[in-house]
Amino acid sequence: MTELLGIPPQVLFGQVLLGLINGAFYAVLSLGLAVIFGLLNIINFAHGALYMTGAFVAWFLLSYLGLGYWWALLLSPVIVGALGMVLERTLLKRIANLDHLYGLLLTFGLALIIQGLFRNYFGSSGQPYQIPPLLAGGHNLGFMFLPNYRAWVVAASLVVCLGTWFVIERTKLGSYLRAATENPVMVQAFGIDVPRMVTLTYGFGVALAAFAGVLAAPIYQVSPQMGADLIIVVFAVVVIGGMGSILGSIVTGFGLGIVEGLTKVFYPEASSTVIFIVMAIVLLIKPAGLFGRAA
């Protein structure tokens, strides 16, 4: 087959696919962060740890209860979301009106505790998690080989991201969320229970992280460190997209995943730093991020 820009198409499209998969995780995780930041004004550093918890819950469900991947995809977000709501009610609520720094410190501490607990019990090495039989194998598209599970990850992430965007931008519930982001006091004075909405939103945000964790379990090993490795990049994605911007998180997540994949093809040495270079450039040109509103 002819080469594209001097690169065999299998290599080029393979890296684009890998980039899309990474982008899918970036998008789902940064979407959760954006939802949480928008309403709670908290930079949730525990997000990576809760993503890892989601993957571990999938592993527990399989190892101890015999419940496979599809059950985990449903149950893990519910369980981790409930854990998130407990964290919000017992800890985050107390710092709701304080400076961002307090939220950042508290959630960073929580992340260290959660990761430490898992590392204490499971060590640093990962636990294996099998691809579900329904999604095993792949298809040869001619220009590249497409593993079914990886295609599923991209499709499922897209559906979840677009579904979340639709709910927030096009429904009554979403208008409550957007309005409460601007002026929670007034929204509450209209008869809406804003504290409950905040708790449910945090629960939903971390449920998204757990969902991403279950998606990741068969691709990466289920390890206590998996969230910490990803979260810094995800924060860069959130900053580039615009803090609190839903659409920004989705577009930037997938977009930067592809940029990262292409960098691996054309200049591999820069592949781990390209996102941060993009972040620096965007912050210089548009400090509020690509889709963010200037304060």
Binding site: E182, N183, Q188, A189
Partner: peptide
């Protein structure tokens, strides 16, 4: 709390109007 008061049938139109920019 204000949400319970609102549900009793009292409504406030504030001085700053509180129109939501994102809506």
């Amino acid at each position: 709390s204000s949400n319970k008061i609102a549900r009793m049938g009292i409504a406030l139109c504030p001085e700053e109007r509180a129109i939501f920019a994102s809506l």
